[in-house]
Computed example of a mutant assay.
Amino acid sequence: MHVVPLPALADNYIWLLHDDDGNAIVVDPGDAQPVEAALAQRHLQLRAILLTHHHHDHIGGVDALLSRHRVPVYAPHDERIATATQRVGDGDIVQLVTPAARFEVMAVPGHTTTHIAYTGEGILLCGDTLFSMGCGRLFEGTPEQMLTSLDRLASLPSHTLVCCAHEYTAANGRFARTIEPDNAPLAARQQEVANLRARNQPSLPVALSVEQATNPFLRTDSDAVIAWGRQQGVDGDRVARFAALRANKDVFTG
Protein backbone atom coordinates (compact mmCIF):
# COMPACT_ATOMS: atom_id res chain seq x y z
CA MET A 1 0.00 0.00 0.00
CA HIS A 2 1.37 3.38 -1.02
CA VAL A 3 0.77 6.26 1.41
CA VAL A 4 0.68 9.78 -0.02
CA PRO A 5 -0.02 13.03 1.87
CA LEU A 6 -1.89 15.52 -0.31
CA PRO A 7 -1.49 19.13 0.90
CA ALA A 8 -4.83 20.91 1.07
CA LEU A 9 -6.37 24.13 2.38
CA ALA A 10 -4.02 26.06 4.70
CA ASP A 11 -2.11 23.22 6.36
CA ASN A 12 -4.19 20.04 6.03
CA TYR A 13 -3.11 16.71 4.65
CA ILE A 14 -5.60 14.50 2.85
CA TRP A 15 -4.24 10.97 2.92
CA LEU A 16 -4.29 9.02 -0.33
CA LEU A 17 -3.71 5.27 -0.06
CA HIS A 18 -3.40 3.20 -3.21
CA ASP A 19 -2.23 -0.16 -4.48
CA ASP A 20 -0.27 -1.03 -7.62
CA ASP A 21 -3.46 -1.83 -9.54
CA GLY A 22 -4.82 1.71 -9.49
CA ASN A 23 -7.26 1.42 -6.59
CA ALA A 24 -7.34 4.26 -4.06
CA ILE A 25 -8.78 5.35 -0.71
CA VAL A 26 -8.84 8.92 0.55
CA VAL A 27 -9.00 9.96 4.18
CA ASP A 28 -10.52 13.24 5.42
CA PRO A 29 -10.89 15.04 2.08
CA GLY A 30 -11.56 18.62 3.15
CA ASP A 31 -11.16 19.70 -0.48
CA ALA A 32 -11.95 17.66 -3.58
CA GLN A 33 -9.54 19.39 -5.96
CA PRO A 34 -6.25 17.93 -4.63
CA VAL A 35 -7.85 14.48 -4.61
CA GLU A 36 -9.09 14.71 -8.20
CA ALA A 37 -5.72 16.03 -9.35
CA ALA A 38 -3.84 13.18 -7.65
CA LEU A 39 -6.24 10.54 -8.99
CA ALA A 40 -5.80 11.82 -12.53
CA GLN A 41 -2.03 12.23 -12.29
CA ARG A 42 -1.52 8.76 -10.86
CA HIS A 43 -4.23 7.06 -12.97
CA LEU A 44 -6.13 5.88 -9.91
CA GLN A 45 -9.76 4.92 -9.31
CA LEU A 46 -11.29 6.08 -6.04
CA ARG A 47 -12.85 3.16 -4.15
CA ALA A 48 -13.67 4.49 -0.68
CA ILE A 49 -13.60 7.54 1.60
CA LEU A 50 -12.72 7.31 5.30
CA LEU A 51 -13.63 10.14 7.69
CA THR A 52 -12.35 10.63 11.23
CA HIS A 53 -14.56 13.48 12.48
CA HIS A 54 -17.04 16.13 11.46
CA HIS A 55 -14.94 19.29 11.09
CA HIS A 56 -15.38 20.97 7.71
CA ASP A 57 -11.68 20.91 6.83
CA HIS A 58 -11.95 17.11 6.94
CA ILE A 59 -15.26 16.55 5.16
CA GLY A 60 -15.74 19.64 2.99
CA GLY A 61 -14.77 17.91 -0.26
CA VAL A 62 -16.90 14.79 0.15
CA ASP A 63 -19.99 16.03 -1.70
CA ALA A 64 -17.94 17.05 -4.72
CA LEU A 65 -16.14 13.70 -4.76
CA LEU A 66 -19.41 11.79 -4.52
CA SER A 67 -20.77 13.72 -7.50
CA ARG A 68 -18.09 12.02 -9.62
CA HIS A 69 -17.38 8.75 -7.77
CA ARG A 70 -19.89 6.21 -6.47
CA VAL A 71 -18.00 5.05 -3.40
CA PRO A 72 -18.80 4.18 0.22
CA VAL A 73 -18.13 6.78 2.90
CA TYR A 74 -17.11 5.40 6.29
CA ALA A 75 -17.64 7.80 9.19
CA PRO A 76 -18.27 7.88 12.94
CA HIS A 77 -21.74 7.84 14.45
CA ASP A 78 -22.27 11.59 14.18
CA GLU A 79 -25.27 13.20 12.49
CA ARG A 80 -23.09 16.19 11.62
CA ILE A 81 -21.57 14.01 8.87
CA ALA A 82 -24.52 13.74 6.50
CA THR A 83 -22.59 12.10 3.65
CA ALA A 84 -21.82 8.87 5.53
CA THR A 85 -22.99 5.64 3.93
CA GLN A 86 -21.61 3.37 6.65
CA ARG A 87 -21.28 4.35 10.31
CA VAL A 88 -18.44 2.74 12.23
CA GLY A 89 -17.37 2.77 15.85
CA ASP A 90 -14.83 1.36 18.26
CA GLY A 91 -13.76 -2.18 17.37
CA ASP A 92 -15.46 -2.25 13.97
CA ILE A 93 -13.50 -3.49 10.98
CA VAL A 94 -13.41 -1.77 7.61
CA GLN A 95 -12.59 -4.51 5.13
CA LEU A 96 -12.00 -3.28 1.59
CA VAL A 97 -11.65 -5.59 -1.39
CA THR A 98 -10.14 -3.04 -3.80
CA PRO A 99 -7.66 -1.99 -2.70
CA ALA A 100 -7.21 -4.99 -0.43
CA ALA A 101 -7.04 -3.33 2.99
CA ARG A 102 -8.28 -3.95 6.48
CA PHE A 103 -8.59 -1.25 9.13
CA GLU A 104 -9.70 -1.45 12.73
CA VAL A 105 -11.70 1.50 14.02
CA MET A 106 -10.64 3.05 17.33
CA ALA A 107 -12.75 5.54 19.29
CA VAL A 108 -10.42 8.40 20.22
CA PRO A 109 -12.55 11.17 21.77
CA GLY A 110 -10.97 14.40 22.91
CA HIS A 111 -10.68 16.73 19.93
CA THR A 112 -14.35 15.92 19.30
CA THR A 113 -16.55 13.51 21.23
CA THR A 114 -17.09 11.20 18.25
CA HIS A 115 -13.58 11.25 16.75
CA ILE A 116 -12.33 7.92 15.45
CA ALA A 117 -9.04 6.65 14.04
CA TYR A 118 -8.34 3.84 11.59
CA THR A 119 -5.38 1.50 12.01
CA GLY A 120 -4.18 -1.30 9.75
CA GLU A 121 -1.73 -2.10 6.98
CA GLY A 122 0.99 -0.70 9.26
CA ILE A 123 -0.69 2.73 9.18
CA LEU A 124 -2.47 4.94 11.73
CA LEU A 125 -4.94 7.44 10.28
CA CYS A 126 -5.52 9.60 13.33
CA GLY A 127 -7.13 12.80 12.06
CA ASP A 128 -6.69 15.56 14.63
CA THR A 129 -6.15 13.39 17.71
CA LEU A 130 -2.40 12.88 17.43
CA PHE A 131 -0.01 15.22 15.66
CA SER A 132 3.72 14.81 15.28
CA MET A 133 5.15 16.10 18.59
CA GLY A 134 1.67 17.32 19.52
CA CYS A 135 -2.01 16.51 19.87
CA GLY A 136 -5.34 18.09 18.96
CA ARG A 137 -7.10 20.83 20.86
CA LEU A 138 -9.90 19.80 23.19
CA PHE A 139 -12.88 21.33 21.41
CA GLU A 140 -15.48 18.89 22.78
CA GLY A 141 -13.80 16.29 24.96
CA THR A 142 -12.03 16.33 28.32
CA PRO A 143 -8.34 16.00 29.18
CA GLU A 144 -9.05 12.54 30.61
CA GLN A 145 -10.70 11.43 27.37
CA MET A 146 -7.87 12.75 25.24
CA LEU A 147 -5.17 11.22 27.40
CA THR A 148 -6.93 7.86 27.26
CA SER A 149 -7.15 8.18 23.47
CA LEU A 150 -3.46 9.03 23.17
CA ASP A 151 -2.54 6.15 25.48
CA ARG A 152 -4.41 3.79 23.15
CA LEU A 153 -2.63 5.13 20.08
CA ALA A 154 0.76 4.99 21.81
CA SER A 155 0.21 1.29 22.51
CA LEU A 156 0.13 0.38 18.81
CA PRO A 157 3.21 -1.32 17.31
CA SER A 158 6.15 1.08 17.29
CA HIS A 159 6.72 0.65 13.54
CA THR A 160 3.24 2.01 12.76
CA LEU A 161 3.30 4.98 10.39
CA VAL A 162 1.45 7.91 11.93
CA CYS A 163 -0.59 9.84 9.34
CA CYS A 164 -1.74 13.08 10.96
CA ALA A 165 -4.06 15.55 9.27
CA HIS A 166 -2.08 18.80 9.66
CA GLU A 167 1.44 20.09 9.05
CA TYR A 168 1.95 21.39 12.59
CA THR A 169 5.21 19.57 13.24
CA ALA A 170 7.69 22.45 13.35
CA ALA A 171 5.60 24.53 15.76
CA ASN A 172 4.88 21.46 17.89
CA GLY A 173 8.60 20.75 18.08
CA ARG A 174 9.35 24.23 19.37
CA PHE A 175 6.82 23.74 22.16
CA ALA A 176 8.08 20.24 22.93
CA ARG A 177 11.62 21.60 23.46
CA THR A 178 10.30 23.92 26.20
CA ILE A 179 9.11 20.80 28.02
CA GLU A 180 12.12 18.55 27.37
CA PRO A 181 15.07 20.78 26.39
CA ASP A 182 17.58 17.94 26.89
CA ASN A 183 15.74 15.33 24.80
CA ALA A 184 18.26 14.32 22.11
CA PRO A 185 15.80 12.45 19.85
CA LEU A 186 13.56 15.51 19.97
CA ALA A 187 16.42 17.79 18.88
CA ALA A 188 17.22 15.39 16.03
CA ARG A 189 13.60 15.29 14.91
CA GLN A 190 13.44 19.08 14.96
CA GLN A 191 16.45 19.28 12.65
CA GLU A 192 15.00 16.64 10.35
CA VAL A 193 11.72 18.56 10.13
CA ALA A 194 13.53 21.85 9.46
CA ASN A 195 15.40 20.22 6.58
CA LEU A 196 12.23 18.70 5.13
CA ARG A 197 10.21 21.91 5.35
CA ALA A 198 13.06 23.95 3.84
CA ARG A 199 12.61 21.75 0.76
CA ASN A 200 8.81 22.05 1.00
CA GLN A 201 8.60 18.36 1.87
CA PRO A 202 6.00 16.97 4.30
CA SER A 203 7.15 16.01 7.78
CA LEU A 204 4.73 13.07 7.68
CA PRO A 205 4.17 10.19 7.93
CA VAL A 206 6.36 9.44 10.92
CA ALA A 207 7.02 6.20 12.79
CA LEU A 208 5.18 5.88 16.09
CA SER A 209 8.52 5.02 17.71
CA VAL A 210 9.70 8.55 16.89
CA GLU A 211 6.60 10.02 18.50
CA GLN A 212 7.07 7.87 21.59
CA ALA A 213 10.55 9.37 21.96
CA THR A 214 9.73 13.00 21.13
CA ASN A 215 6.07 13.85 21.73
CA PRO A 216 5.45 15.26 25.23
CA PHE A 217 1.75 14.36 24.99
CA LEU A 218 2.75 10.69 24.70
CA ARG A 219 5.39 11.10 27.41
CA THR A 220 3.32 12.33 30.37
CA ASP A 221 4.91 9.64 32.55
CA SER A 222 8.51 10.40 31.57
CA ASP A 223 10.83 11.82 34.21
CA ALA A 224 11.31 15.05 32.29
CA VAL A 225 7.59 15.72 31.83
CA ILE A 226 6.89 14.82 35.47
CA ALA A 227 9.58 17.31 36.52
CA TRP A 228 8.05 19.95 34.26
CA GLY A 229 4.67 19.25 35.84
CA ARG A 230 6.04 19.80 39.31
CA GLN A 231 7.29 23.20 38.18
CA GLN A 232 3.70 23.93 37.13
CA GLY A 233 2.35 22.87 40.52
CA VAL A 234 1.05 19.54 39.19
CA ASP A 235 2.40 16.54 41.07
CA GLY A 236 1.35 12.91 40.80
CA ASP A 237 -1.83 13.25 38.73
CA ARG A 238 -1.12 12.35 35.11
CA VAL A 239 -4.44 13.72 33.86
CA ALA A 240 -3.73 17.07 35.51
CA ARG A 241 -0.20 16.96 34.05
CA PHE A 242 -1.61 16.33 30.58
CA ALA A 243 -4.17 19.11 31.03
CA ALA A 244 -1.36 21.49 31.99
CA LEU A 245 0.58 20.49 28.87
CA ARG A 246 -2.43 21.11 26.64
CA ALA A 247 -3.25 24.42 28.34
CA ASN A 248 0.31 25.63 27.88
CA LYS A 249 0.32 24.58 24.23
CA ASP A 250 -2.94 26.46 23.66
CA VAL A 251 -1.24 29.76 24.49
CA PHE A 252 2.25 28.96 23.15
CA THR A 253 3.46 31.46 20.57
CA GLY A 254 7.13 30.46 20.17
Rank of each mutant, 00 (worst) to 15 (best):
I49P: 08
E36D: 14
R80Q: 12
L51M: 10
P216W: 00
G236K: 03
L208K: 06
T253F: 12
L156M: 05
N215Q: 09
R102K: 14
F252C: 01
C126S: 03
G91D: 07
C135K: 00
Q231W: 03
A240I: 04
V162D: 02
L124W: 01
Q191H: 14
D250Q: 13
V4P: 01
L204K: 13
A244M: 10
G110V: 02
L96Y: 05
C163I: 05
F103I: 01
E180K: 00
T83R: 14
D151E: 14
G61C: 06
R230G: 09
A107I: 00
D78S: 06
A187C: 02
L147Y: 10
T129L: 11
T112V: 02
K249D: 10
P216S: 05
V234K: 00
V210I: 15
C126G: 11
S67R: 15
P34V: 09
L46Q: 03
Q86D: 12
I59C: 14
L96F: 05
T148Y: 05
A40Y: 06
L44I: 00
G120I: 04
G134T: 03
S67I: 06
G141P: 04
G89V: 06
L65K: 01
D20W: 11
T113F: 07
A100R: 11
R47Q: 15
D221F: 08
A24Q: 05
V108C: 11
D11Y: 11
E180N: 02
V73H: 08
R230E: 13
A188R: 14
R197C: 10
